[in-house]
Amino acid sequence: MVKPLVLLPPVAFAALAGLFLWGMNRTDPTALPSALIGKAAPPVETVALGEAQMFTDADLRDGKIKLVNFWASWCAPCRVEHPTLKAMAEDGVEIYGVNWKDKPAQALSFLAELGDPFTKIGADPKNTMGLDWGVAGVPETFVIDGEGTVLLRYAGPITQKVLDEQISPLLAGENE
């Protein structure tokens, strides 16, 4: 006769493994919660990046929906998303860039090589703005409505799927 206590470890292990599996499949792993959704965007605190025109808090509250994109020259996923940003800019989407924890010469070289999709840009070399916005890494993109309210935070490179499913519906809201 098998003693009931002998079955306890394998049953406990199976239950724990099932719980982990359920938890991993429950949500989108790229979706990071943000306390900013539905609230006013934190202040814009950047320094100049080369001769590029810097953006301000007023730019975030100009009545038009826009994106704020945190990026860096050393970031491989930023390079992957760059063609999507350029295509969006060519379609008239205003994208405000924040060069995050980067060296100015390398950031400017990145833009010279790949093109500059940003309406205005600033640098955040000491992560001052990034901390206020809750940036965990780059790329991270925020969709901001015309009053400066955060509508979406997306961590990771913007792909065509992300654009179609998450960002474009918010941008289309501007025309309604």
Rank of each mutant, 00 (worst) to 15 (best):
T30A: 06
P33G: 13
P43N: 13
N69I: 01
D102N: 09
E113I: 00
N175R: 15
A76C: 00
A48D: 04
P125T: 11
I167L: 03
K126W: 02
T27Y: 08
L8D: 02
V6C: 02
F118T: 04
G130F: 00
P77Q: 04
M88V: 11
A41Q: 12
R153P: 10
D91P: 08
L8Q: 03
G122I: 05
V135Y: 03
T56V: 00
A48K: 14
L21W: 12
Q53A: 13
M24W: 14
W100M: 10
S168W: 09
D164Q: 08
M129C: 07
T84W: 00
N25D: 07
A15C: 06
A72C: 08
L60F: 01
H82Q: 08
G137Y: 07
I65S: 08
N69D: 10
E45C: 09
R153G: 10
P10D: 06
T119F: 04
A35D: 12
Y154I: 11
L152N: 15
D28G: 13
N99R: 09
L67M: 11
A112R: 08
A172T: 12
A87V: 01
K3R: 14
N175C: 08
D28H: 12
W71E: 10
T128S: 10
A31I: 05
K86I: 15
T159M: 04
P33K: 13
V135K: 06
G156C: 09
I95P: 09
R153K: 15
K103D: 07
P9E: 06
A40S: 15
G146V: 10
E45R: 15
D116K: 01
P125D: 07
P83S: 06
P117L: 01
D62A: 11
S34E: 06
A48I: 08
P83L: 01
